[in-house]
Amino acid sequence: MQGADKGQSNRLDGRDLRIGIVQARFNDELTSEMARVCIDHLVSLGVQRKHIQHVTVPGALEVPVALQAMADSEKFDALVALGCIIRGETYHFELVANESGAGVTRVSLDHHIPVANAILTVENEAQARARVIDKSKDAAIVAVEMANLLDELL
């Protein structure tokens, strides 16, 4: 296959999409900003606010089960996972990062639904703050683009 994917720009039209967002409340100041940016960017891509369902859960480990419930409902074209895991002094960081990431991927593969994983895994709060806006916008773009791609493929 040569050249860039010519259909990519057409895939950024969110007008007919329904998107579910699961936000971890742990590090709430950061994750609430992520949700705001992601929702605003989804709207800028054409997704109607009334077609965006935003729920919160306690932390990153709870994100996959809420994503799974949304996927089970078959009401959504794509899902978004938002969270922020900041390294601490114990192994807990690795456990939460690895297990939440694996759970998000499992939901996507088991349910054949795109899940944009924007659960930040960072060393400190400064790194998190530096990534909040870009990763949140990226999650919106990935959700819309992948929902449209899967619609083309299936």
Rank of each mutant, 00 (worst) to 15 (best):
D16R: 13
D16A: 15
D16K: 13
L17K: 13
V22Q: 08
Q23P: 02
F26E: 00
N27R: 11
D28M: 13
L30C: 06
S32D: 04
E33P: 00
C38Y: 05
I39H: 00
D40Y: 12
L42Y: 01
G46K: 10
V47P: 05
Q48G: 06
R49T: 11
K50Y: 08
I52T: 09
I52C: 08
I52M: 12
V55T: 09
V55D: 00
T56W: 14
T56D: 06
T56G: 10
T56E: 11
T56Q: 13
P58D: 01
P58K: 07
A60E: 07
L61H: 00
P64R: 11
V65P: 01
V65R: 08
L67D: 04
Q68L: 04
Q68P: 01
A69E: 14
A71V: 09
D72L: 05
D72Y: 04
D72P: 00
E74V: 12
E74I: 09
F76L: 10
D77C: 09
A78G: 07
L82W: 13
L82G: 02
L82S: 02
L82N: 03
G83I: 13
C84P: 09
C84W: 12
C84D: 10
I86V: 15
R87A: 14
R87I: 15
G88M: 11
E89G: 14
T90K: 11
Y91G: 11
H92C: 12
H92K: 12
F93N: 08
E94S: 09
L95M: 14
L95V: 14
N98A: 14
E99F: 15
G103Q: 07
G103V: 06
T105F: 04
T105Y: 02
R106C: 03
V107H: 06
S108D: 01
S108L: 00
L109T: 05
H111F: 01
H111S: 00
H111K: 09
H112G: 06
V115F: 02
A116I: 05
A116E: 04
N117Y: 03
A118R: 03
I119A: 09
I119Q: 13
L120G: 01
L120P: 04
L120N: 08
T121D: 01
E123P: 05
N124S: 15
E125L: 15
A126Y: 14
A126L: 15
Q127P: 08
R129L: 15
R129E: 13
A130D: 14
R131N: 03
R131I: 05
R131Q: 05
I133W: 06
I133R: 13
K135I: 03
K135P: 00
